[in-house]
Design a protein around this nucleic acid. Sequence first.
DNA 1: GCGTATACGTCTACACTGTAGACCCATGGG
DNA 2: CCCATGGGTCTACAGTGTAGACGTATACGC
Lengths: 210, 210
Amino acid sequence: MGGRREEILDAALAIADEHGLDAVSMRAVAERVGVTPMALYRHVSDKAALLDGIVGRLLAALLPSDGDRGRAWDERLNALAHACRAITQRHPWAAHLLFSRPAVTPDAVRAVDVIYCALIEAGIPEREVPRLERLVSTFVLGFAASEAAGRFNPGTGDPRSRRGRLPDGDLPGHSRLAPWLNLPVDLDAEFKADLDDVLALIKAAARKQG
Amino acid sequence: MGGRREEILDAALAIADEHGLDAVSMRAVAERVGVTPMALYRHVSDKAALLDGIVGRLLAALLPSDGDRGRAWDERLNALAHACRAITQRHPWAAHLLFSRPAVTPDAVRAVDVIYCALIEAGIPEREVPRLERLVSTFVLGFAASEAAGRFNPGTGDPRSRRGRLPDGDLPGHSRLAPWLNLPVDLDAEFKADLDDVLALIKAAARKQG
DNA sequence: GCGTATACGTCTACACTGTAGACCCATGGG
DNA sequence: CCCATGGGTCTACAGTGTAGACGTATACGC
């Protein structure tokens, strides 16, 4: 009955969603499961392992794009990217975990494979496929992490992130763009536009040496 | 005499370089400065503020590309990107800090401005400049963070990151690319190639609506 | 000169963290 | 019957960030 492990991961995930990642302590998880903190260690070797477990959960949710098998390669990449962002929107605390944890669970490898196949189908020379896979996954994860951490919304969230109003004389770019700055950004549209650009990049790479 | 604050940041940075970010505790920093833990709070409001302070230090090191003022826009972007990666190579623990901390110190804003100016000079329509700035900074930071966290070198570092050798039947992409996988990646060359592709993306965006 | 305010430092204490180690008990198999 | 094994509990330890009270030395107004 390994169901206890799943129950633990459920609890950890719920706590993270409700009170943030910092609130995920062994004691908190244990209390939620209705058990003593030390009991967790019978099912999870470490706290690190516990965190690995929950990123595993999230990665599993990334895959089930099973209906997409017939679609074109660029649509499949788009779907995967949007799935990834959907996850980090639902679980903002998870973004930086996806980055730091090497995350070589079977599901993660499967996700990478989806990208590999798409790139091959796009006509990328095989030698270049791994590099471009890293490029697009880096961008998608980076976007997701930036959004989750509030890097795209300076001024929102942390109060210390109010721009220090330094003399605009030092900032030719900012003063030139003043009309467009400070108006709200539509991150949905931006992510879509960025993905379009990245897909165009891929197509260009395929043309260069196909 | 605000020199004490700098001394504290120096100590914190040294500890992080020598023993990793987790070793940066208030007590450790205090001991290195030769003072009681609580004395730090006279110069630094929080541990969070202390971390903000050291990312400020790193960002300051990002800027002094003062000799590049005459160069072409793409060379300036390249220089900035390489400077960023150089920092996270020297201080791998800092990569994810650069991501998560909104980091709206004056120096950070100045760095953004450098990118703004380069994009304007590249002929990007002003409306699109902020988006593309976020795109390139996201990619550069993402690459740096991935490299620092070992995401690009599965198998190295954490022992748990040995791929789970799951049946290759499920992984058409991997088995197709087998010859190219598992041979060492030259991340210097990869970063250069990626930047070339991103710059090409920018040039394409400039052409589309210049 | 004196008195006082302010900057800096120390000490103690508190609530928390992850987790090692010993102990306990119920279940199931020889 | 006995014992091993899986799961749970309790205690304890070293370490974390930091609030609050206390001390002291320097600088400044009178």
